[in-house]
């Protein structure tokens, strides 16, 4: 995944949410969205998306992992 992204449109959703959702400047004022609400959503989403991402990683590495275990036995 080591990527220099000249266009961040190519980046995966988890990485994007990690950058965008729980950071940034908060200016006090009459904000309609409760920022705390977004943070809660972010935490929940991240757990969900991380497990999706994790499943993808496992799927990608499934073959070598199994092979490794077989040779160990």
């Amino acid at each position: 995944m080591s990527n220099v992204v000249s266009d961040t449109r190519e980046v995966g959703l988890v990485e994007l949410l990690d950058r965008v959702l729980d950071h940034g400047v908060i200016l006090v004022g009459d904000i309609t969205i409760s920022v705390a609400e977004v943070d809660l959503v972010y935490l929940g989403l991240r757990v969900m998306l991380s497990s999706v991402e994790r499943a993808d990683e496992l799927r990608r590495s499934a073959v070598p992992l199994t092979a490794g275990k077989v040779t160990d036995v």
Partner: peptide, 12 residues
């Protein structure tokens, strides 16, 4: 640029 916290929507 300083990115705003996602979800900063002002009434006016």
């Amino acid at each position: 640029i300083l990115p705003a916290k996602f979800g900063s929507v002002y009434r006016s």
